[in-house]
């Protein structure tokens, strides 16, 4: 690689790091979305349960 080794390795690793960050960000977003919907669902279910209890 000679005199340009530093430039080449830094640019290659930055390019890979950016792809990795984009991928990780996508996964985290998906997880957060899942958890958010799950939380809303369980809140809804608890509400349903409590109304049922009151009725009975």
């Amino acid at each position: 690689m000679g005199e340009y080794g530093g430039y080449i390795w830094s640019s290659v690793s930055i390019a890979f790091a950016v792809v990795l960050i984009a991928a990780v960000q996508s996964v985290l977003r998906h997880r957060a979305m899942m958890a958010d919907i799950g939380r809303r669902l369980s809140a809804l279910q608890q509400e349903n349960d409590s109304t049922k209890e009151r009725e009975s």
């Binding site: 690689m1 000679g2 005199e3 340009y4 080794g5 430039y7 080449i8 290659v12």
Partner: peptide, 13 residues
Amino acid sequence: KDAFRIIYVHVPA
């Protein structure tokens, strides 16, 4: 020389 090798990540991006 070797500096052109950056092309392999730069151009796809």
